[in-house]
């Protein structure tokens, strides 16, 4: 059984079906890329998995548990982590504080009221190293560069130790070298965690994707490797119009 299973998922925004009868399976440790023209329902699909949006019908099963209608914080506790398109780190907190915050394995009030933050744990040090923010630990997130902000958010997902990483355009606005570095980070995570990425940058997709699902008008248009997708005439016509 796949780790993430989506069955006939539909969401209706007052007559407009952003996601329409979507079926999707993601295996454990897999890196899946979601492609599709604007308005295909890629971001909405991520919203439905992480709980930002509630579906009209259908089912989301993660690790054998149905999470379709759980509030977002409970899904996060199941191990679903989300990186938003617009980087949403806590700007008025430092890098270190953002990561401490994301380390939310004990999210209860009582567990946290008596916890004073001491030295960063080894795991945290390692994460800061992975994304190259070790020297910026005391810098407020609002003072990071755009690329660093994106990496901080990826680092937060790692610190959160989620099993499923949902990433919405992780390379948006990055320079070429920053994009490469992001690809390297994802490569490193591949196999360790299940990742679903929405991305437009085809060079990046070519680099990281093993399997690609193309969405069109809220449902799956094509699935396969990068080669299959690039040579698929239906995909071409969906992107270019008739």
């Amino acid at each position: 059984m796949a780790q993430l299973e989506i069955r006939d998922l539909t969401v209706d925004f007052g007559g407009f079906r952003a996601v329409d009868g979507l079926n999707l399976n993601v295996e454990k440790g897999e890196l899946l890329c979601l492609l599709g023209p604007n308005g295909a329902g890629k971001s909405t699909t991520l919203d439905l998995i992480c709980g930002k949006t509630q579906p009209t019908s259908g089912k989301v099963v993660f690790d054998g548990a149905t999470i379709t209608n759980l509030p977002e914080f409970k899904r996060a506790r199941h191990g679903v982590g989300r990186k938003f398109q617009i980087p949403s780190v806590f700007k008025r907190l430092t890098v270190r504080e953002n990561l401490e915050l994301a380390r939310s394995q004990r999210p209860g009030v009582w567990a946290n009221i008596t916890r004073i933050l001491a030295k960063p744990s080894e795991a945290l040090e390692k994460i800061m190293e992975t994304v190259g923010l070790t020297d910026q630990r005391h810098v407020l997130a609002e003072n990071l560069s755009h690329g660093q902000t994106q990496w901080l958010e990826i680092a937060m997902l790692l610190s959160q130790d989620c099993k499923l990483l949902l990433m919405d355009e992780p390379t948006a606005g990055m320079t070429a070298s920053e994009t490469q570095r992001t690809a390297a980070i994802l490569e490193k995570l591949h196999g360790e965690r299940t990742i679903v990425v929405v991305e437009h940058d085809m060079q990046f997709v070519r680099k990281v994707a093993r399997r690609i699902t193309v969405l069109h008008q809220g449902s799956v248009l094509a699935e396969g490797s990068i080669k299959d997708i690039e040579s698929n005439p239906e995909v071409r016509s969906a992107y270019l119009g008739h």
Binding site: F73, F90, I116
Partner: peptide
């Protein structure tokens, strides 16, 4: 209280309660 991890969560909530929820915190508590 404000220096505990709970205080950190509260400062995060001040900035963006929804983001804090996506980290698994039941913000209302």
């Amino acid at each position: 209280l404000s220096r505990s991890k709970a205080g950190l969560v509260l400062r995060a909530v001040r900035e963006d309660p929804n983001r804090a929820r996506f980290l698994g915190y039941d913000v209302s508590n």
